[in-house]
Design a protein around this nucleic acid. Sequence first.
DNA 1: AATGCGTACAACCGCGAAATT
DNA 2: TAATTTCGCGGTTGTACGCAT
Length: 357
Amino acid sequence: MGRSPCCEKIGLKKGPWTPEEDQKLLAYIEEHGHGSWRALPSKAGLQRCGKSCRLRWTNYLRPDIKRGKFSLQEEQAIIQLHALLGNRWSAIATHLPKRTDNEVKNYWNTHLKKRLAKKGIDPVTHKAINGTLNSTAGDKSAKVTASLSHMAQWESARLEAEARLARESKMRTAASTPSKLQAQPTNPPALTSSPCFDVLHAWQSAKIDLESPTSTLTFTRSNAGMLPFSRNTGLELSESNSAMWQQRSDELEGEESEWKFMSKQQLLGLDSKETEEHFICCEESWFPGTTSIGAGFTGMLLHGSNVHDTSKYWGESNNGKVEQSSQLSGDEESKNYWNDIFSMVNSEQPSQSPPLL
DNA sequence: AATGCGTACAACCGCGAAATT
DNA sequence: TAATTTCGCGGTTGTACGCAT
């Protein structure tokens, strides 16, 4: 079977968008939603193909896009998520509020990839090239990689579940409200009550193998509320949350440029007991009142890259329903491993003589 | 001032998956 | 169930811009 072109190629404009075209596209989507991208250009009076319109909207015109410099926390998140997920830019972007996959991809290719390579870190494998890291770092790398692989499985499953939920919710929405709501698929429909339960259900209904060879966690509904993952699409921020995130982001961008891990206490301004309780009880976010970059999975990463610290998130007083793997050990090794990488990458020193950490 | 080079980023292309007919 | 359409993703390209020579 042949594949038809996305649109008639003759007579359609290509290349940079003009302000007039942007205005037309914006006005049309604000009024009608995008609906079918294929049909949009003619309806909006644009000499563009639908694909071009969609790209322009999702990567540039969409109102929930944060443009400008990436913060250090965002850089860390990208690096760590890339180590986990590879070149799955859309998946990575879901953990970076208001950033598009294209933007993340470009930033990786033009900044982070080169910086890693320059510091002797393979940007593909995230491992040291020619023993750039110290001798024990190789061991750390292996252990961390194993743990990250484990986490990546979970994250992949979660992303699949989120996508599934978004589709199902969209279908339900479409069935009940035909007009404009239907035409906003760029914003995944907000999940209602107890998103973690929903994700669990989706996982179960999708028959995702929770007991895969590398998965050592088992669930019951009773402990599902302690899942660490939030529905962190980044597109669901309320205005107040968005403002809070922006404020926090602005603060972070003004900070000293040394990469370092921020403790939960630093971020939350809580004492350790409060923090612990917050982390165990709060299924939504550990960034107060937000589902921002600190939330869920990304939050776990940024929190000292402490992939082993899952007991805090999963809850230890859960009648043993949540079992910790024996491989979940070595907090400090993992933390130090990422610290090594971040400090190297952040360092402006030439990498001629790799630092022995 | 002109030219060349490197960088950053917007935009395009082709493919695969999902949805629809 | 097969054919077709639509959408989203990741890789790549094109171009504007800044800087050095």
